Computed example of a mutant assay.
Amino acid sequence: MSEKTIVAIMYDFDRTLSTRDMQEFSFIPRLGMDSAEFWSFANDLGTREHMDSVLAYLYAMVRMSEQRGIPLRRSQLVEMGRSVEFFDGVEDWFDRVNAFGRECGVTVEHYIISSGMKEIIEGTKIADKFRSIFACEFLYDSSGKPVWPKTDVNYTNKTQFVYRINKGVLDVENDLDLNRSMPDDSKRVPFCNMIYIGDGLSDVPCMKMMKAYGGYSIAVYQDRKKVEALLERNRVDFIYPADYREGSGLDVTVRNIIRKMAISDVLFHENAAQKRGQE
């Protein structure tokens, strides 16, 4: 088997790996607000101003901090990542999956594609498990104060990051190489070697992309009713409780997908070798 065979697992973050939206663990309580109040303000702002919903919540974070005289700094957002809580099994999931990949002869890489805050994710216990974290981010001045949205990962543009992983163009500044035509056999991670794990409608564009191009998509849930329609409408391959522990349904299926990808790669290279032998 080729040593370059890579399996990429891509994750949403909020309610996929973490049990709640990441702002709800520290940021919103710090404002003296409850979650419903904060998200209502952000959502109403977006509706009223015909605004991208992600940009609306980023603005709400800055505005509400300023109104309450509470400084918002990058270092504080990173520190807030320490309070994020994860579903059962998440914290040791990545090492277990990586080890299984090695047993199968492939390299497993993990990526975040999230509309949440990159700074908060960077402060979590699992931040070092990802090859890249694609998420919303502020531009900061010399004091660490946010002055402008630097990256906006909304529900539809999530798919660009799938293409970045596919081509190995992980620098979000590099659009030239991202848009450059590239033969399929030279792309770093084929779509058929990708798995996307998310929790709902915001992940549908990436999930449908996986189904269209030969990868796999999995919806995890706390309430099964919220994702059943995704399965019924053929928008996702599998649905499972958000349980990442060894032996769970999610764990077994991801292992089986990795095993299938590894076997497919073996057969591909065997076929290529035979064709070369006939030349």
Rank of each mutant, 00 (worst) to 15 (best):
A8Y: 05
T16S: 13
M22Q: 14
I28C: 13
R30Y: 00
G32Y: 08
G32H: 03
D34G: 13
E37A: 15
W39A: 04
S40L: 11
S40G: 14
N43Q: 11
D44H: 12
L58G: 07
I70H: 09
R73A: 03
S75D: 04
L77C: 02
M80I: 03
D92L: 04
D92I: 06
R96L: 07
R102L: 13
E103R: 10
G105Q: 08
V106S: 00
T107R: 14
G116P: 06
G116Q: 07
M117F: 07
G123H: 07
G123K: 01
I126Q: 03
I133T: 11
C136Y: 03
Y140M: 02
V147Q: 09
V147W: 10
W148F: 15
K150H: 07
N154I: 10
Y155F: 15
N157E: 14
T159E: 08
N166W: 11
K167D: 01
L170V: 03
L176P: 06
D177A: 09
N179S: 11
S181T: 14
D185T: 02
S186I: 06
R188V: 13
R188D: 03
P190V: 12
N193G: 09
Y196H: 01
I197D: 00
D199E: 14
G200P: 10
V204I: 14
Y216T: 08
A229L: 01
E232T: 01
R233Q: 14
V236C: 08
I239K: 01
I239G: 06
Y244S: 03
E246D: 07
S248W: 02
N256V: 00
N256M: 07
I257P: 02
R259D: 01
K260M: 11
M261K: 04
S264Q: 12
F268Y: 13
A273H: 11
K275E: 09
R276V: 06
Q278Y: 08
